[in-house]
Write a protein that binds this DNA or RNA. Structure first.
Lengths: 224, 224
DNA sequence: CATAATTGCTACCAAGCAGTATAAACATAG
DNA sequence: CTATGTTTATACTGCTTGGTAGCAATTATG
């Protein structure tokens, strides 16, 4: 169903420029789609069994293809891991930047940030968890690129906390250090949340908002 | 040096009952010491490279022994992992219980709890990180035992939050859920702290205390 | 000093798996 | 319907590594 929906989307994109280009474009999108499907199944296995314990044969079997099929879309196992980790942090970063683009006071923005990032983390738990867990399995240069993305995330969050501090909305002694605690709290969701568990996604998101608000709240109390 | 100190301790314990018993006891302690050393080195590798990526040959080499040596003290690789995970959570639990045994108000106790548990987590980062990261590599029954210990930890922490709630010291809507956020914040230290990094252990511990205090602080502000 | 027991090592195996060389199947075009 | 390029599968290799059988060395005992 996922498959069919995507195929339909792709069909619509056909015959815009001359046919050659259109055909080439279609082919590219099919390739991109195959890559996405491989990544999706791989992320399930990496999440459930860990990177090292997962065999590409098992991923291939799940997709009803063979191992060389995977190797014709990805260079090697490590490239799969990198793309999964990259997805995990990039999605979070996108959510953060989008939330920051909403106008408002620092308090309002922080609330939106936590809400959206928490939601994204829950929806993409597999990618985020693998990214948090398997950093040591990445090639050094890949690990560095991932760390850079995370650093960007923490820096932008710190800037927001600093803005709130300057406006008097937040009581944070050290914005960049507090940002790490906040982003840790958000990361913790991926490691701990369990779909169909004791608490719903909405409860967890609301809790996260409350916790973060309290962490930055001035001693005098919140303003509503 | 670690070695020598332990050896000295062990020597003192000799010739108390009749010699046979003394000799047997000494032997047991030497065995226990060898097991500890194996575990210690294994935890370094598991922490740095992950469980699956670590070979027992490399652990043996680090100890200047051979693989069969390890196998004469541990049944298999999985037993090593279990003992490391068990150490990670048990140490935290011990620290929690010890802190709880100190008399005081809920606020005072919470502060001591966070301080001591955070310190233990930093000092035993290898064990705690492996425990947080490698749960999926444990045998199901081992994983269950580890989860039970963590559940005990969270439950005792929740009881403290509840005590503070009833006395009016804390503002927590749902103690057992808040306990999970607090224990998550503490766990986060293991995943994030880096010795010799930007912030000292003491700074991190103090930050953790501040964050947790804010998380449970009534809207009116803290009492000092 | 001889004998027994304990302790550790050498040398090996079997299995699992990442990665590949090569051929078959399929589609596309002329 | 043939020729050409592309996509996917079959069938393999080489290496790694958890685990073990059996031997050597060391220590304890009488």
């Amino acid at each position: 169903m996922h498959k069919l929906a995507d195929m339909t989307d792709m069909a619509e994109l056909m015959d815009k420029p001359k046919k050659k280009r259109a055909a080439a474009q279609l082919k590219d999108e099919i390739t991109a789609y195959k890559r996405r499907r491989i990544l999706e199944e791989a992320s399930h296995f990496f999440f459930a069994n860990g990177y090292e314990a997962t065999t590409l044969d098992s991923v291939a079997e799940q997709l009803n293809v063979t191992k060389p099929f995977i190797y014709s879309y990805y260079k090697n196992k490590g490239e799969l891991l990198y793309e999964i980790c990259q997805t995990g942090i990039q999605l979070s970063l996108n959510a953060l930047e989008e939330a920051l683009s909403v106008e408002g006071t620092a308090s309002e923005q922080l609330k939106i940030v936590v809400e959206r990032v928490a939601r994204i983390i829950i929806e993409n738990q597999r990618y985020v968890t693998v990214y948090l867990r398997e950093e040591k399995s990445l090639l050094p240069e890949d690990a560095r690129r991932i760390r850079d993305l995370r650093h960007t995330f923490d820096t932008k969050l710190a800037a927001l906390l600093d803005k709130g501090k300057r406006s008097g909305e937040f009581d944070v002694a050290h914005p960049s250090r507090t940002a790490i605690w906040v982003s840790g709290l958000l990361s913790w969701i991926a490691l701990w949340y369990h779909e169909g568990g004791r608490w719903s996604a909405t409860e967890v998101v609301m809790d996260a908002i409350t916790m973060v608000q309290k962490m930055v709240q001035p001693a005098g109390g919140a303003h509503v």
